[in-house]
Write a protein that binds this DNA or RNA. Structure first.
Lengths: 196, 196
DNA sequence: CAGGTTTTGGACAGATCAATACAAAACAGG
DNA sequence: CCTGTTTTGTATTGATCTGTCCAAAACCTG
């Protein structure tokens, strides 16, 4: 009996997510969100309650899309540990490249959120922390495999190396946003791989 | 003949810098700046022209203070290359530790600016890029020394390794903001050092 | 101590912010 | 085709934002 929505909620969420991703939370106005999604204010508030709620859903969606894809690369047991980590770096760099604006990457929404919001938005911080834990778990597992197979020779613990890789990934993102070119990003990733 | 200012401009700049550092550019209101500096609106606008101008000056001051100190560590020719890089990491981690709020670091203003502003503020981007170049130059020089002395055995070029270290530093900052504890940060830094 | 200049405080301007109110439009079921 | 429910567009709210205005206070110099 109710009137159906004229738009696809998931599609609108993707548009909102991308806007937050590119502009950040504070610099994104509700009007920006209207323009990006093509919806009116009423539809947005009716569907997503508030800007903050919409941001949280955007963040969740981002991690569902991105992290899930990336962890699939790490968990691919048909490949060696080194190949998996390499594939992850390649995917990250490829993402940075295809999302360039004015010679700069747009980074990673979870990194951006950590920097912009984590200190004063506990909910956002919790979502990012949860995502990070998933990533660390997968990284640790693949490093363990690589150590068992003798591919990774560092004597450091898998947990430490996972943290290290995660930091390098964040650093890659920041470097991309700073305007580093692809060969530079590849060199950073390769150097990190050699540290394992 | 003119009436002198009642405040110390440099001191006010430091307070403003710290506010931008902790809260970010967008989330800092002019009233926040008044509260932090203890100045009235008129004094701020009379002295610094605008929020954006004040931000640029804060950014310059930040890099003058921080980068200058850090590069002094890298350029200290009384120490070995490895010791210098180690000292840099120690200083960064010590800085992250002494600036913690609610179990989180407040990061680095240049990294924060890269993430929040570089894409849409060319002036801020230029200031950050200039600072980064200084850092890369010093890193490259010390790596060159380490390679000559046989302390660093990686076959990668000093330029690439400098980029790598810079990325790890950014990653350290983000990790600190994400709530990583000190041993974790130290492990990340040590792992990076081993890659050289 | 007086004149000229600057700083300072507080009120204010205009824009923009997130969010809401409300009525008209659009749809499903009976 | 009508009834009830939801969505949608528009106008508007009240708060907050950056920046300005202006008069009074404060200072230095002559």
């Amino acid at each position: 009996m109710p009137r159906p929505k004229e738009f696809d909620e998931e599609q609108a969420l993707d548009a909102a997510m991308r806007t937050f991703w590119v502009n950040g939370y504070e610099a994104t106005s509700t009007e920006d969100l209207c323009r990006a999604t093509g919806l009116g204010r009423s539809s947005i508030y009716n569907t997503f309650s508030s800007k903050h709620e919409l941001f949280k859903r955007s963040l969740v969606r981002y991690t569902e899309l991105m992290t899930t894809n990336q962890l699939a690369l790490l968990d691919d047991e048909t490949r060696t540990a080194r190949d998996r980590v390499h594939a992850l770096f390649d995917a990250i760099i490829a993402g940075e490249v295809e999302n360039r604006r004015d010679e700069r990457g747009i980074g990673c929404l979870t990194v951006n959120t950590t920097v912009e919001l984590a200190a004063r938005d506990p909910e956002a911080a919790a979502l990012v922390a949860r995502d990070q834990q998933r990533r660390l778990d997968s990284l640790e597992a693949v490093i363990r495999v690589g150590q068992r197979d003798g591919q990774f020779t560092s004597r450091r613990s898998p947990a430490e190396l996972a943290r290290f890789l995660n930091a390098v990934i964040a650093g890659l993102r920041v470097a991309g946003q700073g305007g580093a070119d692809i060969p530079t990003l590849k060199a950073i990733a390769d150097t990190a791989l050699e540290a394992l």
